[in-house]
Design a binder for these strands. Sequence first.
DNA 1: TGGAAATGTCACGCGAGTGTAGCGCTTATG
DNA 2: CATAAGCGCTACACTCGCGTGACATTTCCA
Lengths: 182, 182
Amino acid sequence: MRADAARNLEAVLSASARLLGADPGARITDIADAAGVDRRTIYRRFQSREELLHAIYRARLDALAAVIDAARLEEAPVLVALHALAEGGIRLSREWPVDIRAAVESDVVIRREEINDRMGAFLERAQREGLIDSGLPEGLPLAMLHAVLRTLALELPDLSSARAADLAVDSFLNGLGAGRTR
Amino acid sequence: MRADAARNLEAVLSASARLLGADPGARITDIADAAGVDRRTIYRRFQSREELLHAIYRARLDALAAVIDAARLEEAPVLVALHALAEGGIRLSREWPVDIRAAVESDVVIRREEINDRMGAFLERAQREGLIDSGLPEGLPLAMLHAVLRTLALELPDLSSARAADLAVDSFLNGLGAGRTR
DNA sequence: TGGAAATGTCACGCGAGTGTAGCGCTTATG
DNA sequence: CATAAGCGCTACACTCGCGTGACATTTCCA
């Protein structure tokens, strides 16, 4: 692929993630404008709107899988892995701010579930090792972790990903309370 | 208004909140089907799709304002008010599962900001009174509270709103950690 | 620098969803 | 039970975004 074509592809993917993340019904024309490219150029790389969306989802899943591998959820000390997961997850949510839950393509759904399983298993290890409360409803830790990461990534964009990760881990484990109310 | 008409209106609003919450691009036809009503009936009550969306937003804002009033954010003991806010907020998010952040109508935006201001002021009181950590980034407590409530309301639908509120307050203030890591 | 790759532009057909119209039937309510 | 409010149904025009085609032009790279 030619260098300028690669640049354009990059710009299209980035603009797509941004616009489609903010509004899943965003028009191809607007994405093209945001990427500084003609609408026709997008259709040269992607057969259809669906395929573009699919590519964005895949990009996010790829990045997420890389983050999880790097965090070594299975072997690293729980707290260390949790922090690595938080920082990577936050950075990734900012780079690909699409909501993967909206995906319906079967391969995306499968990969998403695989990743959720790995994160779920990690959180169960954290519970066995006494870092996370064991009496919580099924699925709550995973749901809450996602929520905390998404919130810090998107609603406090001025925080560095490192600082945001600190806050994410602290909020997740200890909450925002000043003293002990428990 | 005739009684059956009122019933239909109710069904339409409820179905709209559900479908539009899951997918903001949901078709009027699908909403009508879900409500057990003809498409034409919806257009008899609402001039346009926009106006229907607007009505849903207003319904959610009305319910939220009522919850906030009932919680007596300004006078009640902070922890009591927080719990009332949590329970009401969770119940309301389940009844009107639309994302108010997607609204663009100016009056909706204004009312939403007013409500956010009241909640923000309440959380500042909680910080002054020592319930919430005072060293947190601007806006984090409010964003996190919204996130916790939304998560418990929508991702753990089997929990009663009372139980969910308990968990929401505990997660918000103390996190999910089993011991102290701080 | 020449040829191939990539893009921009204008045009068009297509399908889907919106909003409207009229008419006959159902149903609540006095 | 009468009457008017409300509804379902079929059909239609209209808009908008999608996806494609052809061709001239620009840009990279060997």
